[in-house]
Design a protein around this nucleic acid. Sequence first.
DNA 1: ATGCCAGGTAACACCTGA
Length: 259
Amino acid sequence: MIKIATWNVNSIKARLPNALAWLKEFAPDVVLLQEIKTVDEGFPRLEFVDLGYNVETHGQKTYNGVAILSKSPIEDVSTGLPGNDEDVQARYMEGTVFGSVRVASIYLPNGNPIDTEKFPYKLGWMDRLYAHVQACLALEETYVFGGDYNVIPTDDDVYNIAAFAKDALVQPESRARFQAIKNLGLTDAFRSFNHAPHQYSYWDYQRGAWQKDNGLLIDHLLLSPQAADRLKEAGIDKGPRGKEKASDHTPVWCVLDES
DNA sequence: ATGCCAGGTAACACCTGA
């Protein structure tokens, strides 16, 4: 069994004690990290190596940054989403774990405010992701596209849809692109097991959002058919969000059985 | 309409996030 998790840590340096404690407790085999907020040289890799993880990073200064941790070697790593050589934001990387499972760590642009250049950047990024996923699926391999998609798929995936009417995370253009990517043939791991409304992976630091359960479901694990065939279990581990010095996101995970 | 928190950077304020 391979336990795979995705977690937007909101700075790996600020989250180091929490991240190490969670890895010891939850013992995932593979972790897709987002918003590491450091250059590659600044990533505290030795602490993760000590826990038995191999580490690959795609960082940048101050903002964004993604990483992959795996108890297996991480092979054939590629960084950046194809289709725009001008894009300097570190939001995408892929690697092969456990010999044949291709995993992607995705930090999709937020896109707010929608009347700025940030929103078309998000939509363009999603168009590039669509094209890339389409190309990957043609290979008919075991793929897990996990990360912070910055899309609230349905009105039931947010505590108060009215408050988000003008938010990039719910705009029809964002949702349509997310749905189009899934419609290429991907399976949402969490929603394969849990259809209840108001299940969240993110709670704002402000206004007591965590205490009031005012959350959003924006972190998703999307599986190729070959991965979905092996899907045994999935869930959201809310534990880390309740800790001191928590990230505003909590891990979403799934378990694949052996091929 | 704005700031509420939190993190990073750099400087003792500002940017970004969702």
